[in-house]
Design a protein around this nucleic acid. Sequence first.
DNA 1: GACAATGTTTACTGTTTAGTATACACTAAA
DNA 2: TTTAGTGTATACTAAACAGTAAACATTGTC
Lengths: 118, 118
Amino acid sequence: MEMLLGQFLRDQREHLQKKDKKYSLRQVAARMGINAAYLSRIERGEPLHLSEEKAIALARDLSIDADVMLALNGKISKDVQEIIKKRPQLFAELIRNLKEMPDNAILRIVRVERDGNW
Amino acid sequence: MEMLLGQFLRDQREHLQKKDKKYSLRQVAARMGINAAYLSRIERGEPLHLSEEKAIALARDLSIDADVMLALNGKISKDVQEIIKKRPQLFAELIRNLKEMPDNAILRIVRVERDGNW
DNA sequence: GACAATGTTTACTGTTTAGTATACACTAAA
DNA sequence: TTTAGTGTATACTAAACAGTAAACATTGTC
């Protein structure tokens, strides 16, 4: 469930690499500011973790959604964490209640909130 | 914003201790399975962190809401984290959208979801 | 006054996190 | 054919995390 990160990154990187050789493991690693060996181990599925900063840099480079990247990397964005920690009871209850809800029901809430129709 | 944990715990523990001497620092620490020295340092405001397990044990012992306890301890419950990580885009967007919403508006969503009126 | 229990301080510990540096084997290009 | 670039394996590391053990001064109880 989490080990998918490696293969996912490799697939995405190699896909980009076919069209542009700047997506070699070494060059991607260099752009995101880490050692190539470390990225290699992650792509090979070793249970390692990138810092939020590096994970986001990698997501940008490979055109992956940052929240998805973080989740595959076993984390949740700090800004989202901070929102929850300010009202922990409220948000914990909300999230637990939404656990089994289908996406479209949750999306409806997102939309209603964004449009402010309350 | 986070340093409040120590004073909060001390207040709550001393409050209970007035009515029942089993709420001494040493005895509470013993019941939750940690060293008294560590709990002392936390209550004094040193920037230390309890594991989720110990934090929840302490919350139980002192009749504090577990999610509040975890938040003061700088964390979010693993079960809540897992829910978010399964649908990271969806939940991240939802939470960011609810950031500025007042409690009662969020409570309304919680209640609607729980009652299943969709 | 003795003894137990309280909270505190200091120094130390093993584990995890988030990496680096170096050397290696392989392939592609000049 | 040497040279540049690719991914990989191994060994190492500094800092943070989550504590423990022991000694200490203070307060409460018999």
